[in-house]
Design a protein around this nucleic acid. Structure first.
Length: 327
DNA sequence: CGCCAGGTAACCC
DNA sequence: GGGTTACATGGC
């Protein structure tokens, strides 16, 4: 499949305004994240796509220094002045450029289990370039399957219903919007995209987020309850949405995978009851349990990342792989 | 073949 | 309410 070419339309200089150190590399690239084709990273650069309603946006980012992110913006269609501020705000939020980290660092420095993760990942923030709809889809695809199946379903959905774009020397996939996905039938999701029983719940996600934009959903307090009214969104998916796309640093979405990692690191046990773990983390890191979990999980994968950094001369192979992947 | 994987809804008492 | 169980699919 031939990717659509995006044109260079802007360059943004985004200062880090949050307190505490900022790590460009460990914030934008997460060793535990599975490969989606929506982003790719080398030692010095990150490429990522975004959807702003109709507009497809590609961004190539690097760090001018540890207080300044430089983002080259590539778009299709008409790039309007209003898009500049929206993209800038999206990047600031996605990578927490304006979030303070000092309170967490202070808490974590008192906890022995946090010493190594803090040293290795100093300045790492939560990364979530996904909006509420997109992170809900990711969480849905993580439910009760192996990562290889999650990766397969993600590839199917993005190949069949998303976009393929080329910019700044890199080919990437881009998300479909909720409105675009709302037109896809459960039969197609099941038979073509191999979604299994998720084929019946995903259309509920698409309809909900087609009708409720991120701006509508600003009411933090009741958001988790609102999300759980969507069929297929339970405690785990709602918590991932709260901690990632709403960026609530106190929330942890526990699943069998991170539960075992956290139990081992914090309780010295192979596993633990979710309630015990939640209570323990709230006590150790009041207001910052989610950030603490982030550091522990990413540290677990830093030596053998799920989707490793690419060598600069491997981008050609990367592009070929995406452009020839089964449709 | 049976089990399980980075859960959830529907049913049971 | 809290404790089961089916749910699709693919890899081992």
């Amino acid at each position: 499949m031939k990717p659509r070419h995006l044109n260079h339309t802007d360059t943004l200089q985004l200062p880090v305004t949050g307190k505490g150190p900022f790590s460009f590399r460990h914030t934008l690239w997460k060793p535990s994240h599975f490969g989606t084709g929506l982003e790719v990273h080398t030692a010095t650069h990150s490429w990522r796509t975004f959807r702003l309603d109709h507009l497809v946006v590609g961004v190539r980012m690097s760090a001018e220094n540890d207080r300044l992110l430089v983002a080259d913006v590539f778009t299709d269609g008409h790039y309007e002045p209003e898009h500049r501020e929206r993209i800038a705000q999206r990047l600031i939020t996605s990578y927490g450029l304006d979030e303070d980290l000092d309170e967490f660092t202070e808490l974590a420095s008192q906890v022995p289990a946090m010493q190594e993760p803090l040293d290795t990942l100093a300045g790492m923030r939560q990364s979530c370039p996904e909006d509420h709809f997109e992170i809900a889809v990711i969480s849905l695809l993580l439910q009760n399957v192996t990562i290889s199946r999650t990766t397969q379903m993600t590839r199917n959905l993005l190949t069949h219903h998303g976009k393929l774009v080329h910019f700044a020397g890199v080919t990437l996939r881009a998300w479909f919007t909720a409105a675009e996905l709302a037109g896809v039938t459960p039969e197609t999701l099941k038979e073509q995209d191999r979604l299994g029983y998720r084929a019946r719940t995903l259309p509920h996600f698409a309809a909900f987020f087609r009708d409720h934009t991120t701006q509508d959903l600003a009411d933090e307090e009741t958001l988790v309850d609102r999300f759980q009214q969507i069929k297929g969104v339970g405690p785990y998916t709602a918590a991932v949405m709260a901690s990632h796309s709403s960026r609530n640093p106190s929330v942890v979405g526990l699943d069998v995978w991170n539960r075992k990692i956290l139990a081992r690191r914090l309780l010295g046990a192979e596993d633990a009851a979710p309630e015990d773990l939640q209570r323990h983390m709230k006590e150790l890191f009041p207001g910052h349990a989610g950030t603490a979990a982030l550091y522990l999980v990413e540290h677990e994968f830093i030596r053998s990342p799920v989707a490793p950094l690419l060598a600069a001369d491997a981008l050609d192979v990367w592009n070929q792989t995406l452009e020839t992947s089964a449709a």
